[in-house]
Nucleic acid binder design. Structure first.
Lengths: 192, 192
DNA sequence: ACCTGAACACCGTTCAAGT
DNA sequence: ACCTGAACACCGTTCAAGT
């Protein structure tokens, strides 16, 4: 799976081919089918490898639910920025293996330890995870298929959209932008 | 593009094939290349068609920035729920055509009219859009490649993850879950 | 038990050719 | 100007066969 993930990091999801995967392993491409039923299973295995890299939250004695959620989302973001092509995969393929279930279970347990109910904890986690994945999707999202030719609108085009241009004048700081929204989301969830 | 979108709705993004697209139009598959340079351009055209369906915000005289953002996200969600397969496309392909730029520009102008600065408005929009797309991705996200075989963990498996099981006991209400997070995000952004 | 190789039904894209 | 059809270099997957 390290090999598969490396291929995706290099060539994108569409670039991970059963045939290329076999070749990369120095094996007949069809040998893969002895271990995996189909390409979906390969994707799921990659997703699990990435989630493994995210790892488990450390037990923090003085933690609040705010800090637990904040840390979990920052950890997820850090790892997914190393594997940008996998973001749509992570958001899209529900992997229900012991390791991923145990990770969610531990997070909820930590939230319950801070005083939340389990359903409250799950709802809050779901919100924060959605925001984190969505931000990553638009931030590092790699286009499906061939990329568009012009990625940035030239200045004379933007002149026709003054409000948008004024909004973009200060530049774009991905980390600051992400933190702003996560902070706001957690703050707002406090008044639940 | 209505045809292309209909094929995606029916067969998924991977199911939209240059050859099938041509056949659906009753034309030689290669005729498409007279109008579009490659498959990426076809995706971009589909994205634009979906964003057109989202349409423009109505001018609301008594609007607050909160109501403008809320309405824009709800409109986006409503349309994307009709076209679930396009969610990763929307999040991932930046389409910089006059129609989509005009739409962003109008939204920011509405936000500025409520007293925000243009950069503030853009930051808030970016947060809300990320949350909306992320929620849609995990909510309606259609797996890339063949779907996993078992989609729901059986009860006896969940017994090993009591906190998670307790969190899921009340069931999952997508609309309520989405509204909760959007409300919280907007509330939290108020303290900026 | 684990791997190979041929085969089938597909892809996106190019290019010369038709009307 | 607009469309066709053959061709090329790929895909995922099946299946019989090898060791």
């Amino acid at each position: 799976m390290r090999t598969a993930l490396a291929v995706i990091d290099r060539d994108g999801v569409a670039g991970l081919t059963m045939r290329k995967f076999g070749a990369e392993l120095g094996v007949d491409p069809m040998a893969v089918y002895y271990y995996l039923p189909d390409k979906g299973a390969l994707f799921d295995a990659v997703v699990e490898a990435v989630l493994d890299e995210v790892g488990l939250p450390e037990p923090a004695p003085g933690a609040t639910w705010q800090s637990v959620v904040w840390d979990a989302c920052q950890r997820l973001r850090t790892v997914l920025r190393r594997h940008p092509h996998t973001v749509p995969l992570i958001g899209t393929r529900p992997v229900l293996t012991p390791r991923t279930l145990a990770s969610s279970d531990l997070l909820i347990r930590q939230l319950v330890d801070t005083g939340l109910s389990a359903p409250e904890g799950l709802r809050i986690l779901t919100c924060a995870r959605a925001y984190t994945l969505g931000h990553l999707l638009v931030e590092v999202g790699v286009p499906a298929g061939p990329p568009p030719e012009a990625n940035v609108a030239p200045a004379e085009v933007m002149a026709a959209y003054p409000a948008l241009a004024a909004g973009m004048a200060q530049g774009y700081d991905p980390d600051g932008q992400f933190d702003l929204g996560l902070r706001a989301l957690i703050d707002g969830l406090g008044g639940r």
